[in-house]
Computed example of a mutant assay.
Amino acid sequence: MITVEHLSKTYGAYRAVDDVSFACRPGAVTGFLGPNGAGKSTTMRIMAGLTRPDAGRALIGGVDYHDIPNPGTQVGVLLDASAQHAGRTGREILTLSALTMGLPLSRVDDMLNLVSLSADESKRRVRNYSLGMRQRLGIANALIGDPKILILDEPANGLDPAGIHWMRSLLRAYADQGGTVLLSSHLLHEIEIIADEIIVIGNGRIVAQGTKDELLQGAGAYVQAVDNPGLAAGLQQAGHTVSASGEGLRVDAEPLQIGQVAAAGGHVLVELRRADSAGLEEMFLQLTAGAQREGVVTTGGVA
């Protein structure tokens, strides 16, 4: 169990994390989403005892990370796959971890097999590893102590499609066996597939959290017309709330109601569906619109 309570962290005048609270339960994969600079990595560094908060606390299994005896056997952490000793081999890195935690050296071979690093690859210096290989080594290092909790920041970065599928299966099996997984990723499709619960952060604050189904349901409808501004005007006149969404409109109404307004106004529709079928990406962009560096592109002049 991971419990974050009223966590805040400020760097000078910049508030990186602002009164953040959430929990990650055993037996579930929790997706932690947010734009660059939203506060994800800072929050995870506080959990792992690498950064001290200004206020609040982050508890791992009910205690502060620094108070966990032999923490690698209780919580596995991967925050930066490139932050591994470049001059050591993969096998040496895992061997040192096993010795530090008092584990049998057989765990080294177990982990190399688990993450599909061959005997030859395990003898290479990490400086000669691809990013994907470093991710696999980092995951092996996080799992070597057989922890009950995993905290992973962008573990799929650098993995090829087969590697992403492998990681998804690994984490799903880990959670199904009662483990707790907190997973940060920019690969929204992967989060949508694997996550049981989702936390969205923007500008240092939690903007949404809940199960995937809770966050994606009841979001109105998405419609795209040949004349988006004209349809938007008709919908607003009918009392519906309308906002731009990608190449179309998000409307606080049922598809049938939108279709009736479109028919009455003679509008040709290109697409009409419930907004929950638009998936995680559209929800993410809407919730974090104010925190996106590039901003969310709008069409048709609808605010």
Rank of each mutant, 00 (worst) to 15 (best):
P71T: 13
T95L: 08
P161V: 07
L152W: 05
P104M: 00
G138E: 08
A119H: 11
G87P: 12
I194W: 03
L117V: 09
V207A: 05
K123M: 08
L182C: 04
D146G: 02
Q177T: 12
G102W: 04
A208T: 11
I139Q: 03
D120R: 13
G210K: 03
L105M: 13
D153L: 03
S106C: 04
S106A: 12
V75H: 04
G72K: 01
M101F: 02
D109P: 00
L150N: 01
R205F: 11
M101Y: 08
V75P: 01
L114W: 00
G102C: 07
A119W: 11
H85M: 13
A156S: 15
L105N: 10
G90M: 07
T89H: 09
I198L: 04
D80I: 04
I193E: 14
I164F: 09
L103A: 00
T73C: 11
L188T: 12
L152D: 08
A156G: 10
G178S: 05
L94A: 09
I194Q: 05
N203L: 15
T211N: 01
E121S: 10
V115N: 03
I199V: 15
G163F: 03
S122C: 05
I198T: 00
Y129W: 11
R205V: 14
H189N: 13
L182R: 00
R168Q: 13
N157G: 05
K148F: 07
L79T: 06
A98R: 02
G158F: 01
E92Q: 15
P69C: 14
G132L: 03
Q84M: 15
Q84P: 12
G138C: 08
I164G: 02
R124Y: 03
L105F: 06
N70R: 15
M111C: 13
N113L: 09
L152Q: 07
I139K: 01
Q84F: 14
G102H: 06
A119V: 13
Y174R: 10
L99F: 11
Q74R: 15
I151P: 02
N70Q: 11
G179P: 00
P69E: 15
V181R: 00
P147N: 06
L99S: 12
G202L: 08
R88H: 14
G210I: 02
S169R: 14
D120W: 07
L150H: 02
P71K: 13
M101I: 07
G102R: 08
A173D: 14
S169F: 06
A142E: 05
P104S: 03
R125W: 10
I198H: 01
R88W: 14
D80A: 00
E154G: 05
N128S: 13
L188Y: 09
L99C: 11
H189F: 06
S185Y: 07
R91A: 14
D176S: 12
L117T: 11
Q209W: 05
G87C: 09
E197L: 01
S106D: 14
L159C: 02
G210S: 03
D120A: 12
I144P: 00
G72Y: 04
I198P: 03
Q135H: 10
R172C: 10
